[in-house]
Write a protein that binds this DNA or RNA. Structure first.
Length: 492
RNA sequence: GGCCCCUUGGUCAAGUGGUUAAGACAUCGCCCUUUCACGGCGGCGACACGAGUUCGAAUCUCGUAGGGGUCACCA
């Protein structure tokens, strides 16, 4: 049995979206789970759709996700080159072999002629097959046209009768009538192959054993088989995977924004979480386990866990999974990912203890871009409405908040030296609870106004004393005084 | 329109003739609690429909409906 070889064959036409990435992942996993090899091949035979920089997006994405390839651009391999535009000479030769075998033929029809055929023919929907006008050309005519340099394409001669059956590992046996198949173009008039042809030639030459791709290719697969047969080549194992949908009606597409890997990274999702999530979108290990590193996926992946039906990309579940990854990270790892977002708010040279801030927000962060709005008040106290001092459950209102703030400030000032000697959350909590007891009020009636005055927000990461610890004595007292002043102004 | 494919709660999904039809996200409620979040407990909620095969069908067959794909000198 030959060693399993799969390939990811993207065309450099823009960003890499989640569906592409998932296909790459499955291809990678099929190879790795079977101890095989994974190849990257760039399919850039359409020069018009080429987008500058998109090759780098592909390389970068694979690198960030850890999907490594054994052969491909930049790493080489014995079946290179791995960029199709660098292989252009190969395809024409193979196409000519097919012409000799009468499995393909030259076609000199103009695009205009083909267009007119479609409009005349296509009254019932858009069904159209080439009329084989050029199939009947004599060898002399062909040679003459060629000698004159007349533009031509090479078409596959597909049988018009009978049926073709192929087997797909996910979908089973699929049979189609050959009459529904068109004499597709193999070599375009610019001399480059079409995807359909280059794909077959390269997959064979590169000894690809498992052709894994989106199921939009299901209906053209019979043409591939006929091609393989015409060459006398072995037919690979087909693994068609269902699409990733934006909603029940639409596939995920680049135009609709946020589903590209790059976008998700920019929105603060972690590469590991994205990969883990999309692995489970269309594949199941069979049990209830949901968390897998790439390595663990390699160990657990099996083709029969692939689903047949399309899956809707659910950003909410990804967000949850991302949050799980963040929560489970070590404080050091979290700091590494969060630091840019923290310093963007508090500044590079902040006197605040970044580690303490990070500790506060780690459990509360779902995506990294949540961070700034959670901690902005550390940098600067917002101008808030005193209504936020009122909280039914805490039994606070403006009046008692004012009264209690006065007591708290007085208490802080009287005990400054002692408090500063052990300025930490747990101590402060104990001390403020004592104060509450002494004043005969609920703990919350002391703690809530403090938290509110320190954050200026209805919600904050961490409670009164945690915020106080980070802000320090001076800033704490300053903010309490601001709060008191606001309340005073209103209650006159 | 022809051909091909798909169909378990709002979403991801387990399930391959006998289950009280798992689990997760979301949602709702309760608990914990110095707000929020985390965490804990619980609720709601599904086999598209109709025939058939069978002692028995989410599981097999056929039909219907709905959805998707494809029908390019794009991949």
């Amino acid at each position: 049995m030959a060693v399993t070889r799969t390939r990811f064959a993207p065309s450099p036409t823009g960003y890499m979206h989640i569906g592409n990435l998932r296909t790459a992942l499955y291809e990678y996993l099929i190879a790795r789970s079977q101890g095989g090899q994974f190849i990257l091949r760039i399919e850039d035979t359409d020069q018009e759709r080429f987008v500058e920089g998109s090759m780098d997006v592909i390389y970068k994405t694979l690198e960030m996700t850890g999907i490594s390839y054994d052969e491909g651009p930049g790493v080489g391999g014995e079946y290179g080159p791995y960029i199709q535009s660098e292989r252009r000479g190969i395809y024409l030769e193979y196409a000519k072999q097919l012409v000799e075998k009468k499995a393909a033929y030259y076609c000199f029809c103009t695009k205009e002629r083909l267009e007119s055929l479609k409009t005349n023919d296509g009254e019932l929907g858009a069904s159209f097959n080439y009329d084989r006008h050029c199939l009947t050309l004599s060898q002399e005519e062909i040679d003459k046209n060629l000698a004159e340099g007349k533009p031509y394409v090479i078409r596959q001669l597909v049988p018009r009768e009978g049926k073709t059956t192929f087997h797909d590992v996910v979908y089973g046996d699929i049979t189609v009538d050959n009459e529904t198949l068109d004499d597709q173009i193999l070599i375009k008039s610019d001399g480059l192959p079409t995807y359909n042809f280059a794909n077959v030639v390269d997959d064979h030459l590169m000894k690809i054993t498992h052709v894994v791709r989106g199921n939009e290719y299901l209906s053209s697969t019979p043409k591939y088989n006929i091609l393989y047969q015409a060459f006398g080549w072995d037919i690979p194992t087909y693994v068609h995977v269902p699409s990733v949908m934006k909603d029940a009606q639409h596939k995920l597409s680049k135009r609709n924004g946020d589903a590209s890997f790059q976008d998700l990274i920019e929105k603060g999702y972690l590469a590991e979480a994205i990969l883990n999530y999309i692995a489970l979108l269309g594949w199941s290990p069979g049990g209830t386990r949901e968390f897998f590193t790439l390595k663990e996926l390699e160990e657990n992946f099996t083709i029969d866990g692939l689903s047949k039906s399309p899956s809707i990309f659910d950003i909410e579940k990804l967000k949850w999974m991302n949050a799980e990854y963040i929560r489970k990270a070590t404080p050091e790892d979290f700091m590494a990912m969060a630091k840019p977002y923290i310093t963007a708010v508090v500044g590079e040279d902040s006197v605040l203890d970044l580690n303490k801030i990070a500790a506060l927000i780690q459990q509360r962060t779902e995506i990294l871009t949540d961070i700034p709005e959670k901690i902005d008040f550390f940098k600067e106290l917002p101008d808030y409405d005193t209504a936020i001092y009122c909280h039914k459950k805490m039994k606070t209102d403006k009046e008692n908040s004012k009264a209690n703030l006065e007591k708290i400030i007085a208490f802080f000032k009287e005990n400054e030296a002692e408090l500063c000697s052990k300025w930490q959350s747990s101590e402060l909590y104990a001390v403020l609870c004592e104060l509450a007891a002494k004043c005969e009020v609920k703990n919350s009636q002391i703690l809530w106004p403090v938290r509110t005055a320190l954050s200026g927000k209805e919600v904050s990461p961490g409670g009164a004393t945690e915020l106080a610890e980070i802000l320090g004595y001076n800033e704490t007292v300053r903010r309490l005084e601001i709060g008191l002043e606001k309340l005073n102004k209103e209650l006159i």
